[in-house]
């Protein structure tokens, strides 16, 4: 094909060059995302090392943390019986408790949220109670649940449940109450029954709100589990930290804190990912 500018139909010759350009661009975009946090982390580590690096400082510097805990980092899967198990098992035990407590909170919270969102009577009756109960700190429930369940594990799970449920209830209720009148009218004209209305209109319309509540809930559960486990003992990341304190193993505590932070971050991301899947749109 010969045009005014001569033979222009030779894209193949330019392809490798173009591909290289694109790769370069992608690498640059990647770097733009990765470099700032890496730099921040490096600076913070350096600062920490400088502040705590001297002999006799109260907290160990990062180099010492890595050296002291290298065995734990290297093999998170060991199992010497009792509470002497690798970090993987410790975290798994905590995640199990959070998983059970949070799932129950999600089911009950959504159900109660729908109830007070739908019915003004239920809203007037229950909302004041919820508003008071939600301000009770999670650990304040622990003695009561220990007395009620007479066992540490269900007590810890109950603390998670009671911590996570309030934001789920309140956000779900807001989500249900904000459903536009138009959607209700569509449902009425179509004569959708209760179940159809719930699955076809209420759930999709309020999913973003529900998942806001679920995200706050999972964050709070993860906060509460560490504190609860410190008190109830057994295998779990909370007790691991407490145990580290009792044995003056500060490096182990610091390592555990890093793991707790990272797991908390992924829990939050996991919930918002599930929310996006269910809603079929960004939430």
């Amino acid at each position: 094909m010969t045009g005014i500018l001569g033979d222009v139909a030779k894209p193949a010759r330019f392809k490798p060059w173009l591909a290289r350009l694109r790769l370069w661009e992608r690498a640059r975009n990647c770097a733009a995302v990765l470099v700032p946090p890496l730099v921040t982390i490096a600076v913070l580590l350096l600062l920490w090392q400088l502040l705590c690096g001297e002999q006799g400082s109260a907290l160990p510097p990062p180099s010492k943390v890595v050296k002291d805990t290298w065995e734990l980092i290297r093999d998170p899967f060991f199992d010497n019986g009792g509470t002497d198990v690798g970090l993987f098992w410790q975290i798994l035990a905590s995640l199990k408790r959070v998983g059970i407590g949070f799932s129950m909170a999600a089911v009950c919270g959504v159900a109660l949220g729908v109830l007070i969102g739908q019915s003004s009577f239920a809203y007037r009756g229950l909302d004041p109670i919820f508003q008071v109960l939600r301000t009770v700190p999670p650990l304040a429930w622990l003695p009561i649940s220990l007395a009620a369940f007479k066992d540490s594990n269900p007590s810890a799970i109950f603390v998670i449940f009671i911590t996570a449920i309030w934001p789920i209830i309140l956000n779900t209720a807001v989500g249900v109450r904000q459903i536009p009148e138009d959607y209700r009218n569509v449902a009425r004209v179509l004569r959708l029954n209760g179940l159809e209305y719930f699955t076809k209109i209420m759930l999709p319309a309020s999913v973003p709100y529900m998942f806001t509540g679920l995200r706050i809930g999972v964050g709070l559960s993860w906060l509460a589990i560490v504190a609860a486990e410190m008190l109830v003992g057994g295998v779990g990341i909370g007790f691991f930290i407490w145990d580290g304190w009792n044995s003056s193993l500060l490096s182990e505590i610091i390592l555990a804190l890093i793991y707790v932070g990272i797991i908390g971050f992924f829990l939050d991301r996991a919930i918002s990912f599930i929310g996006r899947l269910i809603a079929g749109r960004p939430i």
Binding site: P180, D182, Y183, N185, V186, K200, I201, P204, A205, A279, G280, R281
Partner: peptide, 10 residues
């Protein structure tokens, strides 16, 4: 047919 279409956005 509603004034503001009332289609379900999802």
């Amino acid at each position: 047919v509603f004034q503001n279409h009332s289609l379900l956005p999802w």
